[in-house]
Simulated assay, not measured.
Amino acid sequence: MGIFLSKTKTLEHSSESASSSTYTLHKHGSPRTSEFRVFFKKDGIPISPFHDIPLHADMEKQIFNMVVEVPRWTNAKYEISRSDVINPIHQDGEKTGPPRYVKNRFPHHGYIWNYGALPQTWEDPHYVDKDTNARGDDDPIDAVDISQHISYTGEVQQVKVLGILGLIDGGETDWKLIVIDVRDRRAAELHDIDDVDRLMPGYLTATREWFRLYKVPDGHGQNEFAFGGQYRNREFALRIIHECSEAWERLITGNTEPGDVDRTNTTLESSPFRVDPGKLHFPEGEDLPPAPLPKHVEEWFFLPSRDNPGQD
């Protein structure tokens, strides 16, 4: 299963802003299986959600595009594929093992926010972050959307950035942006990380605890944090986004080693990896029912709690 690419001369057409484009999804395989993929098109043209969707929806107002991978209250660990051609969303898991799910650690049911990533960013695995003393995790920068809206896998949302949490996951830098969908009724009142604690008391503490313990039911240790688990503010978060955007630009223009990242794109004139979209052939589109949920996904897992691991 997969998408194949025929070598061809690149086209000469520029990317458009997100607001003037229509994103559609092209699904293949049954959800909750290792074969499932969600491909993207913009105005009917195949695109990479990693590379072709603009980082900014409105640069002047600092509104960003966020690609949703996992909707709130769900457990399947969907993510943008680094290595598949044109980076469809797939369910994470070992190549020879079952797809991954996040366990329900009481009292949390699955993901407690819409979870996704900002396009055109990259946490460079060659770079040791001076704030975390760890290399990047080789993915786009992650974002958690704290709005009331329950999204869907593949939705492209426009979000405000409020702050950031410095997770150290498996010894790698794995920044977690705190954002809110601009459509949310609280968006006009939330401007920085302190506003979240004031208007949504307990949410930042729950979020930090979620990231600290989410792998423990699978037999792994607790995750660590930079800054002792303290959140950093909007200004700091915007600096991290800028650094990750610059890293992505080096990646997509061929000025750094890509590792296993596929750099195929259809809109970026400055990229040597731009291809003719007419030569990208998706697998046949399907709308298949999902595979059954494994029994363990519906169970509760109980772990000790820890109060006040850091000051927000």
Rank of each mutant, 00 (worst) to 15 (best):
F236A: 13
R105N: 08
W175P: 04
L238M: 15
D137I: 01
A237Y: 07
I150V: 12
P217G: 10
I45L: 04
T74F: 08
H296M: 07
E286N: 04
D218H: 12
H220A: 09
D197M: 11
I241Q: 03
D129F: 14
P217K: 13
E246F: 02
N265I: 01
G116M: 01
D194C: 08
F302Y: 15
N133H: 14
Q222L: 13
V128L: 12
Q230G: 13
G166L: 14
D194G: 13
L11V: 15
P31A: 10
E246P: 00
I241L: 05
L118T: 05
R306P: 00
I240M: 09
P309Y: 09
G259E: 09
G163H: 07
R37A: 01
D169Q: 11
V159A: 01
H26D: 00
W210T: 03
Q222R: 14
R105F: 11
S17K: 10
G221W: 06
K103N: 06
D181G: 06
L177F: 08
P283H: 02
P107L: 08
T205H: 14
R100A: 06
R232E: 02
I80E: 01
S17G: 15
M1Y: 09
S17C: 12
G310F: 06
Q120A: 07
W210V: 04
V161F: 08
S270D: 15
R212S: 03
D58K: 11
V275H: 01
G154I: 04
F39D: 00
T24N: 08
Y115M: 05
Q158Y: 10
L268D: 11
P98H: 13
I86M: 15
I80G: 03
Q158A: 12
F4S: 13
K279T: 12
S81D: 03
H26Y: 14
W300N: 14
V70M: 03
N223E: 10
F211W: 09
K42G: 05
C244W: 00
I252R: 04
D276R: 05
N87T: 03
D181C: 08
K295G: 13
P292F: 06
A18H: 11
P283I: 06
T173H: 10
S147I: 09
P292E: 04
S19F: 09
K77V: 14
K176Q: 05
K176C: 01
D58C: 12
N255M: 09
R37K: 15
N104S: 02
L204Y: 13
I240C: 07
P71V: 05
H28V: 07
L55K: 07
P99D: 02
G116T: 11
E172K: 11
I252S: 02
L11M: 11
